[in-house]
């Protein structure tokens, strides 16, 4: 809805984009008109590295139902993964907040 509302999640990780792997520190998350997905509104996520200027991104545009399914599966995968690899997951380094 042309809202300009963006939720920012601070991350520690990597993403693979057109130029190969890059570190990422931020996900810009929004629900608005998509650029590519054939939907009126989509949940968009742009994975970027603000520390590196944020000019490259790995992007997804998902339907609202897909996004909820993905969010549930992320939590489910973490839950089962932590059972299998509990110590490793719990001792993973915490995201470093951006300056």
């Amino acid at each position: 809805m042309c809202s300009y509302i963006v939720e920012k999640a601070k991350l520690l990780g990597s993403a693979k984009g057109p130029s190969g792997w890059m570190r990422i520190d931020t996900a810009n998350v929004y629900y608005d008109h998509p650029f590519h997905a054939p939907l009126d509104h989509a949940l968009g996520i742009d994975f970027i590295s603000e520390a590196d200027g944020g000019r490259e991104r790995v992007a997804v545009e998902l339907s609202a139902a897909s996004a909820r399914e993905l969010a549930a599966k992320i939590l489910a995968a973490l839950a089962t993964g932590e059972v299998e690899h509990g110590k490793a997951a719990r001792h993973a380094p915490a995201p470093v907040p951006a300056e």
């Binding site: 963006v6 920012k8 810009n28 650029f35 742009d46 970027i48 944020g54 490259e56 991104r57 992007a59």
Partner: peptide
């Protein structure tokens, strides 16, 4: 420079 969608994403993140 950049594709219009990538440029648009930067603008959105900057609040329009």
């Amino acid at each position: 420079p950049g594709s219009p969608d990538d440029v648009g994403a930067r603008v959105r993140a900057a609040g329009g």
